[in-house]
Amino acid sequence: METSDQTTVEQLDTPSLLLDLDVMEQNLKEIAQFAKQQGIRWRPHIKTHKCVEIARKQLAYGACGITVAKVSEAEVMAKAGIRDILIAYPLSSPLKLQRVAALLPLAKLTLAVDHAKQAELLDQFFAHTSAVVDVWIKVDSGLHRCGVEPGAETVALAKEIAKYPHLRLQGLFTHAGHSYAASSREEIERIGEYEGQAVAESAAWCEQEGIPIPHRSVGSTPTFRISGRQPGITEVRPGNAVFYDAIQVGLGVATYEQCALRVLSSVVSMRPHERLVLDAGSKTLSLDQGAHGNATVKGFGHIVGHPELTIQRLSEEHGVVAIDRATNLALTDRVQIIPNHACTVVNLFDRYVLHRKGVIVGEWRIEARGKVQ
């Protein structure tokens, strides 16, 4: 619920995690419009925000369901009333499958499969229940993390899954996370095009073998507007696009003005013309400078409105900032920092402080922070 007593963000203690609702809602509107224009579905990954209220916002803007990475995230979201959840992470541990089974009365769950032995273990587990579980095959479109190769290898796994009475193959999906290492817009375009083709063509191969594939899902934040246009794709799953961050700006995917998430921090120490120290260290900003080889960011976050400053190094509670030229900042002054990687920063906080044009309008809990099992 939003409220307002005209308190501004500058009156907060620091460090605080600020969420600009106007910017976030515009980001959601643009994703929803893209999906509608393409005639496809939108299933955002909540690992970025880990917040029930934001998941509800995404559904209100037209998302068909959500994506999670971990069973513990699914538990939070299902218990909060989210009814359609893809767990986009290979599961075979009986401990985790027991937790999945406990959630089946609450939500429609879809599980990821990328290995024949994993499919066998899933079927063996669910044979002891009355469930028939929906599964999607993870296809490797170039990240070389999880997933089977497109084409023949995907078809072979699909045929294996079709043998099992407690599994129901419903889709293929991929994640082109290697787009974060792209050095140009042209490279992102190539990665996104292949991402969509890898899934759509693999689905066509499966269907030629008599195995229907109703869902064909793609979409890292840098590529979803490219892969989502490929013929045969039915769904996109951007996560970071709810907020964007300095990495996305560096990739040319977003502007700083589209970054909805910022860390409010204070100057706690300084040596004029040399350095200053902020109360935002690695336990606030994280040490993340980009996954999969990304090299588009400078320092450990972008200090808004201060091009003369670079967050040069972090210790746990200190952000040491190099002063490249004269700055007007003084002791106790506040700055806002756009994180390099929003997802890792969110996982360090308990709550968002919500604002519209700098006026605080409420708070939202980050219920799934720390949920890594």
Rank of each mutant, 00 (worst) to 15 (best):
V23P: 02
R225E: 14
R351K: 15
A112Y: 04
S184P: 08
R351Y: 14
R325N: 09
D20N: 15
Q11C: 11
A101Q: 05
H178T: 09
I360P: 04
D84V: 05
A101N: 04
I87R: 00
L331P: 00
G299N: 05
L121K: 12
N240Q: 12
E120G: 07
Y244H: 15
C206Y: 03
A116K: 12
H49Y: 14
R356L: 09
Q248G: 11
A200Q: 03
L18C: 08
R237L: 06
H341T: 15
V345T: 14
G151C: 08
T7C: 08
A330C: 10
S141D: 12
M270G: 04
A291T: 13
G192I: 05
V9C: 10
V372K: 09
N294F: 01
L28I: 14
A35T: 15
E207R: 08
Y89K: 01
L314S: 01
W205E: 11
A182W: 03
N294L: 07
D123L: 09
R351S: 15
A101Y: 02
A152W: 05
V267K: 03
I247Q: 05
D114Y: 06
L276F: 08
K159Q: 15
R369D: 01
L172F: 08
V321A: 01
L261D: 03
V353G: 11
V253K: 01
A116E: 12
I366T: 05
K29L: 15
G147V: 01
A181M: 11
Y61C: 11
Q98S: 15
